[in-house]
Every structure is written in structure tokens, then in C-alpha cells.
Design a protein around this nucleic acid. Structure first.
Lengths: 183, 183
DNA sequence: TAAATAAGTTACCGTTCGGTCAAATAAAAT
DNA sequence: ATTTTATTTGACCGAACGGTAACTTATTTA
């Protein structure tokens, strides 16, 4: 019943995610996605409907890999200070090893949003809510868990946006240390 | 010696700034700028050379108005806690009065940057450096001024990106309060 | 083996993109 | 009044944009 597909959706999606991650929604063209996936646009459109579908799928994939990884890192430490220190360290690592400055796809998406923009804005808000829940869980032993989670979220977002914005790893480590100390 | 211009550069620039502020570099077309300034593209190109010139001029204008205003707010309070509380309050105000979610142009620009991109990246880095200096000055009485400024910068960036990302004013106030408490 | 279904391929759609050129127009300086 | 300088206007450029339709090829059912 039909031909076997010569590509794998998950692999294509991974490439698409990296593309949007680096260049944002408007900054990424369908042609860019053809190049990075190696697939013709027809295949992309069949698989993801349209550009927005590609972006939403990429964002969802990001949440299920990168964000889930963050949750895992946090859950590996009992002490919240240690937990967040580890999280921040993981965020900074690619900057001072490979000078990789993609930042956080979700944070970039939040800054990308141009006012009232379709389904994407909603998904971004939802993903941020889930991220704050992850933070909250790591801080659940504290009675000020919710407030602390808010602060750490802001610090996390700031850290990752600044890293994309070109801040050196020395400054980023300063930020991380001070945020952990504030806990 | 020639005809008087029927427009004012500063007014045009103000409109251009708002446009890039809302929609970012890639998300703003020359046609958008024609509409918001009321000027034909010829005039825009003569005045600012090209799209990048328009963006850089807008970013510079942002720094000389909005960022300078931030410095003013900070300088009006002796106690750093009060100073940053006032700064954060000013950042949150437009969200819960007009639901205005432009965020911070400079923060948006930092998140926009797609890798090695021309002169814009450099200017953004410089502007961030200047912003951190402003923060540092407000904290100059402390011996940990530099570290505290780093943390507040990350918190500030996070706060403004989250506000653009749709976080409600309740959450934003939580963030602000906790950041001030961490000082 | 034939029908059905899905994937690959190619060309193409109208629109918008950033950017340019030249003519027309207006006002200041000589 | 004429020259000079600047502004405005509108047409135009090739390229890239997101998206689609049609045709070919391959594979799995019946």
C-alpha cells in the first residue's frame, strides 16, 4: 500500500529544529529547510502542512528533547542550588567549548513573537508554563517554591538570551554563580 | 540651496524604531517602514543607506531614549533595591495598563541575532555592555557591584523577554519582587 | 497482474523581497 | 532669472518568498 519513504520524519525534524533555532521563523526560508534536511519542499509540505506546521513541530520537538533534558539535570540533584548550578553550567558549556551561540529555542521564540501571531504565540506561552513547572518541581521542598521558580526562570531566560547576544563565557559564569547564590 | 525636506528625520526614525521593535529585522519589510513612516522608500534609502542602516539607526535611537531613561530611573534612588524595583515596575507597567508587549528592543535584538551577522551583532554587544555599566553604576556602593550587576542584567533581560513572551503581569511582578529581594 | 496508494520530481503560480534609476518638481543661492 | 541642490514620485529590477498542481516512479495490497 504505497511506497516506503526514503527519509525519516524524526531526522528531518531535527534538522528543521536546528534551522529555526538558529535563524528564527522569518529568518528561515523553505529553501533553507530543503537544504538542511536534504528533502524537496513537496515532502516537507506533505509532512508538515505549511511553514507554521514545521515551526510548531520543531518547537514541540525542542520541548521533548532539550527541555526534558533540563528536567533530567535538575532532578539529578537534591539541593536546588546544585541543581540549578548544573543546569546553568550545561547552558554555558556549548558557548565556551564550541562558541556555539544558538541560545534556547524557546527563549528565542518568546522574543520573536510579533504581537498577536497565530497559534505559535499560544504554544510558546504553554511551553514556558511547562518550563516553570519543571523549575518549581525542583524547588518543591521550599515554601517559596513558586517565587523562586519565577526568579530562576527569568535568570535562565536572561542567561540564554545574553549568551546568544554574544556575552563571553566569563560574564555568563558570573551571571550563573550569582543567580545560584541568590537562591 | 535645495528643497526643504517635508519630513523630520527624528520622527521617521521613531516610527522605524517602533516597527523593528515590534517585528524584528527579518519580520519588518521596507514596505512596512514606508507605511509606518508615511515616507516613500526612496527617502528612506537616501536617509539611511539600506535596511541595515535603518535598523542600526533605530537601535541607536532606542539606546539614547529608552536605555537613557532606564539610567535616569536608576539614578533617582539611592537604595539599589528601590532603584531596581522602580526599573522593573517601569518595564511591567505597559504590560498591565495597555497589554503592550513589545519587550525591550535591545533584548529582542540579542535574541534575533543569527550567528555571525554583520555590524548588527557588534552593536548589540556594545549596547549590552553599556547597559551593564549603567546597572553597575547604580550598584557602585557595593563591593560586589559587578557580580550584582550581572545578575540584575540577566533578570532584567529575562523579565522583558518573558513579558514579550506573554507572561501575565502577576507573574512578571513575582519575578521583579524576587529579583529585588535577591539583591 | 492489476488497482490503489504513497513518495519523488519538476515546473510553475502570484506576491513580496531589498534595492535602483531616471524623470519631475520645488526651493534656495547666485 | 538661472543655476544648483535636494526631494519626491513612480516605474522597474532580478531574486527569493510561501505554496501548489501535475506527472512520474515505486511498492504494497487485492
Amino acid at each position: 500500500m504505497g511506497r516506503k519513504k526514503l527519509y525519516e520524519r524524526s531526522e528531518a525534524l531535527k534538522a528543521i529544529k536546528l534551522c529555526f533555532w538558529k535563524s528564527g521563523f522569518e529568518g528561515t526560508s523553505i529553501q533553507d529547510l530543503e537544504r538542511c534536511t536534504g528533502l524537496p519542499k513537496q515532502t516537507l509540505y506533505r509532512e508538515f502542512s505549511d511553514k507554521e506546521g514545521m515551526y510548531l513541530a520543531a518547537l514541540a520537538d525542542y520541548e521533548q528533547t532539550e527541555i526534558r533534558e533540563s528536567a533530567r539535570i535538575l532532578s539529578q540533584h537534591d539541593d536546588p542550588k546544585e541543581a540549578f548550578a548544573a543546569l546553568f553550567a550545561a547552558a554555558i558549556a556549548p558557548v565556551d567549548t564550541d562558541n556555539e551561540r544558538r541560545g534556547c529555542f524557546l527563549c528565542n521564540a518568546a522574543a520573536d513573537m510579533t504581537g498577536i501571531e497565530s497559534a505559535i504565540a499560544t504554544r510558546v506561552e504553554e511551553a514556558i508554563d511547562r518550563l516553570i513547572s519543571v523549575f518549581e518541581q525542583s524547588l518543591s521542598k521550599r515554601q517559596s517554591a513558586k517565587d523562586d521558580a519565577c526568579m530562576m526562570l527569568a535568570g535562565y531566560v536572561g542567561l540564554r538570551v545574553l549568551s546568544r547576544g554574544g556575552m563571553g563565557s566569563r560574564g555568563l559564569n558570573q551571571v550563573a554563580n550569582q543567580l545560584v547564590a541568590a537562591l
